[in-house]
Design a protein around this nucleic acid. Sequence first.
DNA 1: GCCAACGTTGGC
DNA 2: GCCAACGTTGGC
Length: 156
Amino acid sequence: MTARRRYWLMKSEPDAFSIDDLQRVGTEPWNGVRNYQARNFMRDQMQVGDGVLFYHSNCAVPGIVGTATVASRAYPDETQFDPKSDYHDPKATHEEPRWFLVDVAFERKLKRTIALDEIKQHGDELGEEFALIRRGNRLSVFPVSASQWKFLLALE
DNA sequence: GCCAACGTTGGC
DNA sequence: GCCAACGTTGGC
């Protein structure tokens, strides 16, 4: 019994980890997420094979730059246990990990960036509730519907 | 670099 | 359980 494929958008700052970095390494543990809602999506809902829109944030041209796939079920983010890591969480223990992640595998780079600016012009088609263009939204991992996925990639 | 928006923390 | 203070995100 295989769950139907779901779709997600995942943000990354290209200075820290870009689509080119993902292409180079192939597969990457999506560590450092420290937001409960984003964690819950990864831990509770992501399935191997789910589609991921790879989004560059906090950069000159924010937007969707590639696609990836979910390559593992959720497991504890090791960086929470590492006192030397920026992502260290003193309240997390191996017995009761607080933060989870999935592995993300490179799929392809888009021929061009689908810029946030452009995405915003399609609020009608995407729906007002689409997290990326909802005012003030800072969530770094959130679901994308099949129709939103199709629509966004058709802009390429 | 600025700052609005928002999540988390901790005192009470 | 309220809410002010604080830290972070991320567009601009």
